[in-house]
Design a protein around this nucleic acid. Sequence first.
DNA 1: GTCTATATCATGATAGAC
DNA 2: GTCTATCATGATATAGAC
Lengths: 237, 237
Amino acid sequence: MATPRSASTRDAILDAAERLFAEYGPDNTSMRQITSTAQVNLSAVNYHFGSKDTLVQAVFQRRLDALNTERIEILDRLETAATDQRVDPSAIIEAYFGPLVRHACKADAQRRAFMPLQSLTMSDPNGALRALFAAERNVVAQRFTRSLLRSLPTIPEADIVWRFHFMLGATAYAIMRAERSGRAIDQADDEASPRPQDLLDRLIPFLLGGLCAPSPRGVTGNAFEPTIATSTSGTPP
Amino acid sequence: MATPRSASTRDAILDAAERLFAEYGPDNTSMRQITSTAQVNLSAVNYHFGSKDTLVQAVFQRRLDALNTERIEILDRLETAATDQRVDPSAIIEAYFGPLVRHACKADAQRRAFMPLQSLTMSDPNGALRALFAAERNVVAQRFTRSLLRSLPTIPEADIVWRFHFMLGATAYAIMRAERSGRAIDQADDEASPRPQDLLDRLIPFLLGGLCAPSPRGVTGNAFEPTIATSTSGTPP
DNA sequence: GTCTATATCATGATAGAC
DNA sequence: GTCTATCATGATATAGAC
């Protein structure tokens, strides 16, 4: 926000941190690893980001913004293309999870290994990260939840919200498995990463099947509600 | 294996480590925190477990063993109760994921907060843990995969295997969300934890719907195979 | 078996010259 | 803005008395 002069080293730090975080996780990545990988001075990270926590935050934020922008663009196109407002639910799911999977599996330009960010967000013990993302994630999640509601009028809203979380979990886990099989951050071949489309072909039918599953006996009571707020429901954690 | 004398302090360490790991993750838990919580000496953990890594391993192993034993017992009962070998698939899913969810949400005796172990296993950056669990997990996963195959003859085996992983991811994520909302490790009320049955009532239909979803166009080629090996398929990562 | 005391090391952050 | 040098802290692990 304040002093973006010499964006070069700043971005070098972000890129290096992103690679290393993807491989080892933020906790197991030292600032010295980051700065030596980025070939910048150790103090540069404190100068540009203030602290390691702020750097972690910035790394995640950068990718999350790009991801959500792409997701919203796709959904916009889908909704304007549909004559009525009933978009194919499979396309909605693809619009949300497709960019995530593709980003996660992408071999980035010269560097390899990209961050399965939301996967790591899941398991971070630092609550600050989660809180920071909650706001922005809710905006796009609400868009998608509303679109799914219109597309699947027979599914109760509470089920849509719950199952959206379940879908996220299934996808995140699948991404991690796919990423880990890529291994070895230092290898040079940029195209050996697992094909994201193969994973999506397996994943989307599962997600759609789960999303559209019949609700059992009367479990309409919102025992404890997930965190994506639609219009009515609050956020307990 | 070698020297189980004075199991008291050993178990105290395991219990304390389990609580703290669940709250902060193994990486963000120091041995000093563990030993002071367990009210044992710092050196005791090195004496009993050799290193911190071995302790982490032991903590996970203990719970995983109990979990798998329970799962197999339930599945055994289901299969002997069924006249033919076709068990209700919903019951099979419950047999696998029910104990996991219940364990994760359980308020343990005097202590509160239990570990969502497989959830953390997902995100551990240490490959050793994963490798260690792979063998034992495969044994029970194979049992369940075979049972699901008999129960759902129309679903291709490859889909069963893939979707088993997706189910694991959805469950792990849901557990983490439920656990995190429990918060605060030191509070005294043992029964305030989220009801596991409420979560299961939401989760099982989703899992069943995803598992039984129709397979789309011909994606029978095993592009990259998940790690649970049945009879025919290998394990690429 | 258990403890005190300590060795050894890596981390995040900062001070101050340039 | 960038660097060197350093601080203070907390980590795991070990040596050796009891």
